[in-house]
Simulated scan of single mutants.
Amino acid sequence: MTVAGAVVDLDGTVYLDGDPIDGALAGLERLASLSDGVWFVSNNPSHSPSEYVERLEDIGFETESDRILSSGAVTTEYLADAHADDDVFVIGADGLRRQLRDAGVTLCERPAAADALLASWTTEFDYDDLVAAIRVLERDVPFYGTDPDRTFPGTDGRPIPGSGAIVRSIAETTEREPDRIFGKPSEAMVKAVLDRLPGPPEEYLVIGDRVETDVALGERAGMTTVRVRTGAEASGNVTPDHVVESLGDIERVL
Rank of each mutant, 00 (worst) to 15 (best):
M1T: 15
T2Y: 09
T2L: 13
A4M: 09
V7S: 01
D9G: 01
D9S: 04
V14F: 09
Y15C: 11
L16C: 10
D17T: 14
G18T: 12
L25W: 12
L25F: 11
A26K: 13
L28D: 08
L28W: 05
L31H: 05
S33M: 14
S35M: 12
D36Q: 14
G37K: 11
W39V: 05
F40G: 00
V41D: 01
S42K: 07
N43H: 05
P45A: 04
S46Q: 13
H47E: 09
R55D: 11
E57W: 12
I59L: 15
G60Y: 10
E62C: 08
T63A: 05
E64W: 10
E64F: 12
L69K: 02
S70V: 01
S71C: 03
G72A: 02
A80V: 06
D81L: 09
D81F: 10
H83K: 14
A84E: 10
D85P: 02
D86T: 06
D86Q: 10
V88M: 08
G92Y: 10
G92W: 09
R97Y: 03
R97S: 05
L100S: 00
R101F: 00
D102G: 07
D102V: 08
G104A: 07
G104V: 13
V105R: 02
V105Y: 02
E109C: 02
A112G: 14
A113D: 15
W121A: 04
T123L: 08
F125N: 10
D126Q: 13
Y127A: 13
D129Y: 15
D129R: 15
L130H: 11
L130G: 08
I134A: 10
R135V: 10
L137E: 02
L137S: 03
D140N: 14
V141D: 09
D149K: 02
D149W: 03
R150I: 06
T151L: 08
P153H: 08
P153I: 08
G154Y: 14
I160L: 06
P161E: 03
S163C: 12
A165F: 01
V167A: 00
A171C: 13
E172P: 00
T173A: 15
T173P: 09
E175W: 11
E175K: 13
R176K: 10
D179A: 12
F182H: 00
F182I: 01
K184E: 00
M189H: 04
A192N: 00
L194Q: 03
L194C: 04
D195W: 09
R196N: 11
P201G: 08
P201D: 11
E203C: 05
L205I: 07
V206R: 05
I207G: 01
G208Y: 06
D209A: 01
R210W: 03
V211A: 02
T213E: 02
T213S: 04
V215W: 01
A216I: 01
G218H: 10
G218P: 13
A221K: 03
M223R: 11
M223Q: 07
V226Q: 00
R227F: 06
R227T: 04
V228M: 07
T230S: 15
S235H: 09
S235D: 06
S235V: 07
H242N: 11
V243H: 06
V243D: 10
V244I: 15
V244D: 02
E245V: 12
I250R: 01
E251A: 15
E251W: 14
V253K: 14
V253G: 07
L254A: 12
